[in-house]
Design a protein around this nucleic acid. Structure first.
Length: 761
DNA sequence: GGATCTCATGTTTTT
DNA sequence: CATGAGATCC
């Protein structure tokens, strides 16, 4: 009887999912098919009908915001707080577990901090320095990628298997990087997940506690889990096997972050008795929008077919519009928004989406020019602004004096006369005394008898700062975070430091004050809790209601959201699909899914735009309309069909080839001999914008970083192996793998960045 | 030791 | 273009 409330208004498939018999359950949910509803009702069903205590339920969501909303909805259904329910992102849940079990962690105490990507970069740089490696040859962010990929695959430095030179370097950097993090009592995002899994692997007894506790596990956005997350779920479900996974492989857009939608397949294999439920009714979009989306996604190979349908027959046609350049494109968006407002829509009903954050700028300028309200998701994230990060660094250092990265960041910010020399000397002295740099500072300030190499100005600067730091640490446990922050800002003359008389300086101080407000709001939190919250929020989490403001956001950030009106901008080859994904089928498929996600965010209307010319890195180049446009049936769009437009645009590009009045780029524009799919144009005619694809054969010099330097047939010389002929050369990751037939030693496979191969003319 | 200038470089996406 | 790192100047 109670059940009736819970399933009223749900369709059959949804009801089946909500009331499914406990066990492994896989819900494949199309966009707009009410999966959040299913999840919340399922949890309510577990609590209300099956009498499961909330304490025994774990629900994993993709963002904190989703968690909050779900909690709210469950509260509404149950008419009360589901007390004890664990709900949050993988990262926040893991952070909580690690914090609670910190006494079992070998290298960490409970005050460990969470390093964001900027901090990570610092650590990688330090690791490279420690290993005497050139950060030009081994770009830190690439190293970081390698490390992150490994962690997402649950590969520790110890088991990391190097297969070539680059990966051997990565392995060493990874090892050192990890050691540095531990020395800093810091974890990066990936560590939160990996260390939880490792903790459970090493301590069966601890795992058992959690396994027994979490009788029911529910996971949202299951297609975007990585191996480590999947393993964690397997671990936690190890006793009760009640795992309710909701996902849609067509909306998997985080492969680059280690996500693997094949986890859905893996789930089926590892839980052969899993019940599978398809949610195919879309409650969001009109028929036209859904048809367009389906036509787009249909082109991806190897999909699990779903028959999506909607009861919202018909609808407005999809507007596809070519603009001359990105400014005109932005203007097109403005004009459309103004018309829609006249029709009765509010600016808040609309979202403008784009592939890359850089595209938001022109749009923002247009909004400002026209005077329409807007809000940008992401872009320059608040917590990543320098002045805010500096402020956070102070708090982090106070919380965890072992955090050398934060200390490094603010040691001389605001400037206080501690330059590179003093910094080095401090580090050396600290290491010599087996102290963390911050501890060394405090020793310097408090221990008059300390033996040290500093004198005069440097000594004064260092010890002054040391005694301030010492005082803050004492203050830490006595006053709320906001007050502590006030003291720090006051004593460091932070405002003076930011205020350079410009408006920008004002704004920076404003940001710091805004951060201070955040701290004041969390008055019930201690410093550690506050820092954790700050580290784990995402920009979308703070997307609060701004009634009339139009939302600007990336396609990635749009996942899980919906808007009556959606603008999809920059539908050009090289942008969507992005140039970096053009040559790999799986990556191209992911770009298509991204487009699919964008379209399916819309309830009523979709506007798609692309520019004929677009400015990249300062100079303007001709763009070709996205190959995805042609996938939308002509009958669903207004005006020219997309395919025709692509043709037309292509012609114009061709004429541009001979039209000297337009020919701004000369030598920099290359003519590709082989232009992409060739589905819409004869490949030989297409000029390639310079930025899209570096010509792999541009020059065979060592400076060419991206493309292969060697070609089959080239004669080469190797210091040890002598002369030979290149048989094959291919790029593997960022390294070039060259197969050479040597006269003396036969076939060898060499790594170009490692082996010194000279080309013989 | 600190501020300012020049030059190269490019992260696509984010918990 | 816009940002960051390194070089140079004060």
């Amino acid at each position: 009887m109670i059940t009736m409330d819970l399933i009223a208004g749900l369709n059959t498939a949804q009801q089946t999912a909500v009331t499914a018999k406990p066990g492994p359950i896989l819900v494949l949910a199309g966009p707009g098919s009410g999966k959040t509803r299913v999840l919340t009702h399922r949890i309510a069903y577990l609590i209300q009908d099956l009498r499961i205590r909330p304490w025994n339920i774990l629900a994993v969501t993709f963002t904190n915001k989703a968690a909050r909303e779900m909690r709210q909805r469950i509260e509404n259904i149950l008419d009360g707080q589901p007390r004890g329910l664990t709900m949050g992102t993988f990262h926040s849940i893991c952070a909580r577990i690690l914090r609670r079990e910190s006494q079992h962690l070998t290298y960490y105490d409970k005050d460990f901090v969470i390093f964001d990507s900027a901090d990570q970069l610092q650590v990688v740089k330090q690791a490279l320095k420690d290993l005497n490696l050139d950060d030009k040859k081994f770009p830190p962010y690439k190293m970081l990628n390698g490390i992150s990929n490994a962690k997402n695959e649950l590969i520790t430095p110890e088991i990391y298997a190097a297969t070539n030179y680059i990966s051997e370097v990565t392995r060493r950097v990874y090892t050192q990087y990890q050691a540095l993090l531990q020395a800093n009592n810091a974890m990066d995002f990936d560590d939160l997940l990996m260390n939880t899994v490792l903790l459970f692997q090493e301590h069966a007894d601890i795992l058992l506690q959690y396994q027994e506790r979490y009788e029911h596990i529910l996971v949202d956005e299951f297609q975007d889990t990585n191996t480590t997350q999947y393993t964690l779920l397997r671990q936690l479900a190890g006793v009760h096997h009640n795992i309710f996974a909701v996902g849609d492989s067509d909306q998997s857009i985080y492969k680059w972050r280690g996500a693997d939608f094949r986890n859905i397949q893996r789930f089926r294999e590892q839980y052969p008795d899993a019940e599978q439920i398809l949610l195919e009714q879309n409650y969001r979009s009109t028929q036209i929008i859904l048809d367009a989306a389906k036509a787009v996604i249909k082109r991806n190979p190897q999909r699990v077919h779903k028959e999506l349908f909607t009861l919202r027959q018909g609808g407005s046609l999809i507007t596809v519009r070519e603009a001359y350049n990105e400014r005109e494109e932005a203007q097109f968006v403005m004009d459309s928004i103004e018309n829609l407002i006249l029709e009765g829509y509010s600016g808040g009903d609309m979202a403008v989406m784009y592939r890359t954050n850089a595209q938001s700028r022109v749009l923002e300028e247009a909004f400002l020019r026209v005077g329409l309200p807007y809000r940008v998701v992401g872009a320059t994230e608040f917590y990543k602004r320098r002045e805010v990060k500096d402020t956070i660094a102070y708090l982090r250092l106070i919380h965890n004096p072992a955090d050398a990265v934060s200390l490094g960041r603010i040691l001389n910010v605001p400037t206080r006369g501690i330059g590179a020399k003093s910094r080095q000397a401090l580090q050396a002295w600290a290491a010599y005394n087996n102290l963390q740099p911050a501890e060394a500072l405090i020793r310097l300030a408090t221990d008059a008898d300390a033996q040290h190499p500093f004198k005069n100005r440097a000594l004064k600067a260092l010890s002054t700062f040391g005694s301030m730091l010492n005082a803050w640490i004492v203050l830490r446990d006595q006053v709320p975070v906001a007050e502590l922050l006030d003291v720090v800002l006051e004593q460091t003359h932070f405002r003076m430091h930011l205020d350079d008389g410009t408006e920008e300086g004002e704004e920076r101080w404003g940001n710091v004050m805004e951060f201070r407000n955040v701290a004041a709001e969390g008055a019930d939190m201690n410093l550690g809790e506050f820092l954790e919250q700050v580290a784990l929020v995402s920009e979308t989490d703070n997307l609060d209601e701004a009634p009339n403001a139009t939302t600007l956001l990336t396609l990635h950030a749009a996942k899980g959201l919906e808007f009556p009106i959606v603008f999809l901008t920059g539908l050009e080859d090289g942008l969507l699909p992005h140039s970096r994904s053009l040559d790999e089928a799986e990556e191209l498929a992911e770009e298509r899914r991204l487009f699919y996600v964008g379209i399916t965010r819309a309830k009523d209307r979709v506007y798609i735009s692309h520019a004929f010319r677009r400015t990249f890195y300062g100079d303007s180049a001709v763009s070709v309309p996205s190959r995805f446009l042609g996938d939308i049936p002509e009958a669903l769009t207004d005006g020219d069909s997309s395919a025709v437009k692509r043709e037309k645009s292509k012609k114009r590009v061709s004429s541009w080839q001979t039209d000297t009045t337009w020919s701004k780029p000369q030598s920099s524009t290359r003519w590709s001999a082989d232009g992409g799919s060739g589905r819409f144009q004869s490949p030989s005619q297409r000029p390639r914008p310079r930025h899209l694809e570096p010509d792999p054969f541009a020059q065979g010099t060592a400076e060419t970083k991206r493309g292969p330097q060697y070609r089959a047939g080239m004669r080469v010389n190797h210091g040890r192996f002598g002369d030979g002929v290149v048989i094959e050369s291919k790029m593997t990751g960022d390294d070039e793998e060259v197969t050479v037939a040597f006269a003396d030693v036969g076939l060898k496979r060499l790594s170009a960045s490692f082996a010194k191969l000279d080309i013989i003319q």
